[in-house]
Structure formats: structure tokens, C-alpha cells
Design a protein around this nucleic acid. Structure first.
Lengths: 341, 341
DNA sequence: CGACATTATGACACCGGTGTCAGGGTTCGA
DNA sequence: TCGAACCCTGACACCGGTGTCATAATGTCG
């Protein structure tokens, strides 16, 4: 036997037609139990595996999903945000459970990625991951919708299409942080992140935070906000610039854990004690949060659930079934550790 | 135009045959420049994308690699070892650079994964990642070799086939740690990990460590060794059991960062100060290492280079080209932080 | 016992490309 | 003017499955 065995080989050895082999192996009820046993046996012996390319070509589907990871072009090329890595892990598992394969790809935000994966039939659907520029995305969403590509997106809302998004309730998360700081009596807050419309997730966190503060007569003054992307370095620099301008505060909310960790470094370098002088809270609950100094209070996003939800919703879209929109906004959870006392 | 455009559609609108379309789009020198321009133009307008399934079927290759991640069945299901996640990131990038797609899959060690991905033509080659049971692997390697599947493996050696492995020079890394502790005058060492043949990487680290110690008249006594897999919890438990037996030491080498971080927790809980009472060194240089308390001294494995090497070697195997065996053992680098003073 | 339903199977077209081969048209040298 | 060489193009078989349709074999019932 040269090369791999085909269904014709199996047919030959089992003394049936190729059609019957195909049916037998896919559990068609049209084939006699006895015949099936014989076919399966021969297939096992010849170590036969269905050729996915042939099968997918004919069936016009791929049993494959694609994950596209977008990275902030300004962030460090070599390091991938651990939050998305953890998400990737849970997506992979969820895919496996559903019998789908997973293609992974990194895309720089500027890339002309389009709907390539789906249009070339490499994947049945696409999952988009990344903190990114909301404006820039919208046109790409349109392109995907135009070409009737099935996709779901983490975080960013697709205008008028709630079924395409799975996200954490960022505003509720921000509110949890505010509530926590209020209870600690630390309402003179700084915010490091990006409250503008460029970053829908960060701004939602900020808005929820600010709204809750205002309910208690506090608020974040413009002066105490600094812009950062989700890296330790960026959080460090942003905080440093606040301190350099001699801005005072007794609490700091970092829009992501990496930002908060960078902020802590800046604070400590400036001789401020965390949490004694400044309470710090992050967002994400990365594995790092537990181990850093001091252990970081943060808002946990349930990545396992998020991954399952993304995959489940995408599969529903592909099957033209109803998507559970109500449960696609995941509840965040406050994790209090030493950094906020 | 219902459904996606095919090469026949392009042919129709460009006024040429389907064969010419195929040739034109793949840059065949057989096609006239003027004709090619016309075809490309029409293809762009109709938003045509080559169907990968058809193309792969005919060409009998997939331009896809698969990564199989093995996890210790005893480790926490929900958390993926960050070291491999980081590796995954660099592999993804290396793949993209070579124009290959990447399939990602998790496998429990017990799984009957076999050569499925390659045999069903879903991937041209396979990358194996994971700390695992060496014995268990060997039979699976045989299976892969038997079916002539192209694969490379991180860490574990494939008997007599050095071209199939990319690894860090674990022994050299262990030696670096020993040297460092010797210079600190901390030669009364504990080792947490697995020095048995079950874990080729951990035992290589231990052996290099022990050998260097012995060159300086020291060594690790049997009593000061405890077995752990690569999780924080396991490192914590193992260290705790040593301490419970009242074993004393002034240095501790954790076979991985997660182990070392767990060890630090156990030490601190027991009232021991790191590094004042015990110097702790890990292995991997996870992102966490920099942020934990105290920042962890460790041996860095260059995951970026490792990913590139894995992909490059695999592509060479697929193309039946020579593999750069000499450079497939990557040099480790000692990173000294506070945990070892 | 003939009409008809039921079950199991084979033949065959088809999915959308790729590679081979044959042939039409032009140019160039003899 | 004729043939060889060259360039470009189209026709067609083929990759390895899947789904449809036709049909043979067996069973059921009036």
C-alpha cells in the first residue's frame, strides 16, 4: 500500500462500493449493521482517515473556527497580552468540546485581514479578540457583515447587532471598584487607561466607575486621568506623568491589571506606599495579580465562561439558530487583595 | 451573484478560461502580463478568494501546521501553563511569517490523538508541546514515525532522532543556577520538581544542577528533594512537606517558576524569609517572575527563538531539507532578581 | 400470487480548484 | 515560403470524498 488509504481501498477490501464506505463510516442509518462492522474493521486495519479537504470541499464547510487576535500596534511585539492568551485557552477547549478545530492567527490592527478565513473556506466562523480602536473596527465589521461571514467579537459592540458580541459588563465592573473604594473611604481617585470612545471597554469601565462615584458625591477630575494602553510600561509611564505634575490622590483605578501593576511600580518608586498611601485596583484578574507586590485587587472576568459563550454563540450563528443575547454580557466579580487594603 | 464567486465566474467575466484564471492568480510565468492584470482586476472586483479546500485537495497539502498541547492530566484543567501559552504566541507568529496557518489543539496525555491531524490532511506537520511523561510519549512518537508524519517536539528527546527535537539546554540551565548559588555561598540546597526519568526536562535541570554542585564539593541530598509537577499548588505542597519533616536548607531550586512561586509561599507561611533565610531560583522566566514577591531569580528560556526554531525545523522536515540540529538546543540565560539576593 | 412498501447497495454527478497536454498564433531563420 | 521555436491559452482528467437517484432484494398484505 503506497501512500494513504482512500475510501476506495476500504471499499475494495470490504467488498462493497465506495459510497457504502462513506455512509458506513459516518453512521448513516441506511447501511446494514453487519456491513458497517466489516467496513469499520477494514478501515481500522488500514489506518484509514477521512481526508478533510475532500470532505470539506464537498460538504462546503470546514468544522473549523478561526480566532483572530488583534494587538495594539503600539504595544510590545514580542509579548502577547496574557488576558487574551488565557481567553485563547478557554476558546480552544470549548472548540474541542464541540468537535471543531481552531485556527489561530495574529493580526496587526492595520492589516487588511478582511474576511479571508471564512471566504476561502478555511473556517466556518471567526472569533475576534483584542482591545482595539473601536472606530477602526467598525468598517471591518461592515465588511464581514456584507460578505455574510459568521463572526463574534469580544468586547467591542457591533452597532445594532448585539448577537455578535460577548463581553464582560465593564460598566458594572467599574461600579464594583468605585463601591469598594467608597467603602474604604478612598474617593480621591485617579484613573489610568483611556476613557475616550477609542477604547470601548476601558471607557465603559471608567463610566461605570465614575457614575457610582457621583452617586456618592465624588468624581474623577480631568487632571487625575492619564491615558495608557494595556501594558505594564504604559501604565508605569502614565502614572509617572501624573506624579511628575504633583497630582495627589489616595486611590487609583487601572483600566487593566497590567496598567495597575505598572502604576504600582511608579507609585513605589515615588516613595508612595500601596495601599497605605494609595489604594490600587486593576481589572482582568490575570494570574499575575495574585503574585505581585502587593497582591492586586482587581475585577475578575470569567475567561472560561467567556470562551464558552463566544464559541456557543458563534456556532448558533453558523447554524442560524437563536443566540442567547441576554447571557452574553458576563457579570464581573470583585476580588479584593492587599493592594487596596 | 448568489454564493461565493468561483474561478469559473472570474473566467467568464475576464473572457478567459478557468485554467488561465488559476494560473494568473498564482503568478504562473505562463500567462501574459496583460491577461493577468485583467484577471486580477476582475477577481478583486468580485471579491474572489481561492477555495482552500479545493486547492488543498488537489495539491495534497494544507499550508497548515498543528500545535498539540499536552497537559499533565493531574494539573488544574482550567489553567494552561503560561510558559506554553507564551510559546504558542511565538509559534503563531513564526507560522504567519512563513505563510502557514496554525491549528491549535489541547490533548490530554491519555488521549488517543495519534497522527490524526496529519493523516486526515488537516495539517502538513505537527508541533508537540508539553511537559509530559517521557515513557508514555515514546510509543506515540513511534506511531508518528511509522505513519511518516512530519513532527517536531519541544523538550523531550525522540530516541535516535535529534532532528525532531528543539529544546532548551536544561542541564546548562541547571548548572547556571548551581553556579549562582555557589557564588552566593548557598550550597545547602533543596530541589523541588521531578528528577526521575518521567520528566526529561526537569531531570536534566536537576542533573546539570547537581553536577555543578558536585564540582564544588556539594550536592543535593535525597532528603531535600520533593516531587512536584509544574503548578504553583504542587510546588507549595511539596515544599510544605519538606518543611513539615523539619528539613533545613538555605537555598531552593524549583524546576519551574510556578513551582518556585509555590515554594516561596510555603516558605513564607513557615516564617522563613526569602532570600534572607532561603534563596529561591526558578526556571522559565514567566512574566509573573518579575512581579512576584520577592521578584524571582530564574533561568530564562527564549520562547521567541524556540518558536521560530520549531517552525523552521518542521518546515525543513516537510520539505525534506536538512535540519539545523546544532542550533536546536537553545542556550538558557540566568536572570538574577531579589529572591536569591 | 401480484402490487407495493422497505431496506440495502451501487452508479454517478459534483464540490472548486491544479497540472498536463495539445494546439493556435506569431516570430524568426533558412 | 516553410518549418522550428516560442508563447499563450483552453480542454480535460483528477484529487477524495458526499449526496442523489436508480435498482435489486426482501418482506407484507389483500
Amino acid at each position: 500500500m503506497k501512500g494513504k488509504a482512500t475510501s476506495f481501498d476500504i471499499a475494495h477490501y470490504a467488498g462493497v462500493s465506495q459510497s457504502t464506505v462513506s455512509r458506513a463510516l459516518r453512521g448513516s442509518p441506511l447501511v446494514n449493521e453487519e456491513t458497517r462492522r466489516r467496513v469499520v474493521e477494514v478501515a481500522r486495519k488500514l489506518n484509514y482517515k477521512v481526508d478533510k479537504n475532500a470532505s470539506n470541499l464537498r460538504a462546503q464547510q470546514s468544522s473549523t473556527l478561526a480566532v483572530l487576535l488583534f494587538e495594539d500596534p503600539t504595544s510590545d511585539e514580542s509579548q502577547i497580552n496574557p488576558f487574551f492568551l488565557s481567553m485563547l485557552g478557554s476558546i480552544t477547549r470549548a472548540c474541542a468540546k464541540s468537535g471543531y478545530d481552531l485556527l489561530v492567527s495574529f493580526q496587526s490592527t492595520s492589516n487588511d485581514w478582511h474576511a479571508d478565513y471564512a471566504e476561502s473556506h478555511r473556517a466556518d466562523g471567526i472569533i475576534l479578540l483584542g482591545y482595539g480602536d473601536y472606530i477602526d473596527y467598525q468598517s471591518k465589521f461592515d465588511r464581514l457583515i456584507d460578505s455574510d461571514t459568521k463572526f463574534v467579537c469580544w468586547g467591542a459592540n457591533v452597532e445594532g447587532r448585539p448577537e455578535l458580541t460577548v463581553s464582560c459588563d465593564n460598566a458594572a465592573g467599574g461600579a464594583l471598584v468605585a463601591q469598594h473604594l467608597i467603602e474604604l473611604g478612598r474617593t480621591d481617585c485617579a484613573f489610568i487607561g483611556d476613557a475616550s470612545h477609542h477604547s470601548p471597554e476601558f471607557s465603559a469601565r471608567f463610566n461605570g466607575f465614575e457614575a457610582r462615584l457621583q452617586q456618592h458625591g465624588a468624581h474623577v477630575s480631568e487632571r487625575k486621568m492619564a491615558t495608557a494602553i494595556s501594558t505594564e510600561e504604559s501604565g508605569y509611564q502614565a502614572t509617572k506623568s501624573l506624579l511628575a505634575n504633583n497630582i495627589k490622590f489616595n486611590a487609583l483605578f487601572g483600566a487593566s491589571d497590567l496598567i495597575a501593576i505598572g502604576a504600582i511600580r511608579a507609585l513605589q518608586e515615588a516613595g508612595l506606599r500601596v495601599p497605605h498611601d494609595v489604594s490600587v485596583v486593576g481589572f482582568d484578574d490575570l494570574a499575575v495579580a495574585r503574585f505581585c507586590t502587593p497582591p492586586l485587587s482587581t475585577v475578575q472576568q470569567n475567561t472560561t465562561l467567556a470562551g464558552q459563550m463566544l464559541v456557543a454563540n458563534l456556532l448558533n450563528l453558523i447554524a442560524n439558530k437563536e443566540v442567547d443575547v441576554a447571557n452574553s454580557v458576563l457579570p464581573p466579580q470583585l476580588i479584593v487583595r492587599q493592594s487596596s487594603k
